[in-house]
């Protein structure tokens, strides 16, 4: 390998660099928005239930108070977890691509490291959800012939990196170094 190709490879960034990398930081915001939407839906349902209860006087005074307190607790838990979970996920989740394949770190409480040999990749998908699109992140889905691990997902890669990893896993060598 000559100096120039090495340099150009560095500029482009070799994808199979055997380095543990974090996901895109934008994914935190993407996950947060997802969590907020979920929390909003639940809170809306609770508000409807609460107002209907008040309107038709379903519950006695004490029961209504307990339900209100419970709903407030659920709402605050959902809002807290929507902020906490994505930060923790960003802290622990990572990926690594090297000559023999790809490794993915996932999980917060039950942690998991999944290794997929490159030769076992059947096909791959890159998908982008509606919230992911404005943030330029994507989900890489790797299909293998395995059973429990027939489909391995990496959520929150930068879109360009996801496309390059996909090409690398499918076509083997880096497209061309020249």
């Amino acid at each position: 390998m000559t100096e120039e190709t090495e340099e150009s490879a560095e500029e482009r960034g070799v994808i199979a660099d055997n380095e543990r990398k974090k996901l895109a930081p934008e994914q935190i915001q993407v996950e947060r928005i997802g969590g907020w939407i979920f929390a909003a839906v639940v809170i809306l349902l609770m508000i409807i239930q609460q107002s209907l209860g008040l309107l038709f006087a379903w519950y006695s005074g004490t029961v209504a108070t307990w339900i209100l307190l419970g709903s407030l607790a659920v709402a605050s838990f959902l809002l807290w977890i929507a902020d906490w979970w994505p930060r923790k996920e960003y802290q622990y989740c990572a990926y690594l691509v090297n000559a023999s394949g790809m490794a993915i770190w996932s999980g917060i409480i039950w942690r998991k490291v999944t290794s997929i040999p490159k030769a076992r990749v059947q096909h791959t998908d890159v998908s982008q959800g509606p919230i992911q699109r404005p943030y330029g992140v994507a989900t890489l889905i790797i299909h293998t012939a395995g059973t429990r691990e027939a489909k391995v997902e990496v959520k929150g890669l930068p879109h360009a990196a996801a496309m390059r990893i996909r090409d690398y896993l499918i076509h083997g060598e880096e497209d061309d170094a020249s």
């Binding site: 409480i109 039950w110 942690r111 998991k112 490291v113 999944t114 290794s115 997929i116 040999p117 076992r120 293998t144 012939a145 395995g146 059973t147 429990r148 691990e149 391995v152």
Partner: peptide, 28 residues
């Protein structure tokens, strides 16, 4: 061998242990 994964529960973490699963095709 299709996929090799390492799992660590909170209990495993306390003991610095992990379990290793090997996935093959057609495993029922």
């Amino acid at each position: 061998v299709q996929v090799v994964s390492q799992h660590q529960s909170p209990f495993d973490r306390g003991h610095r242990m992990a379990s290793l699963r090997v996935d093959t095709a057609g495993a029922g």
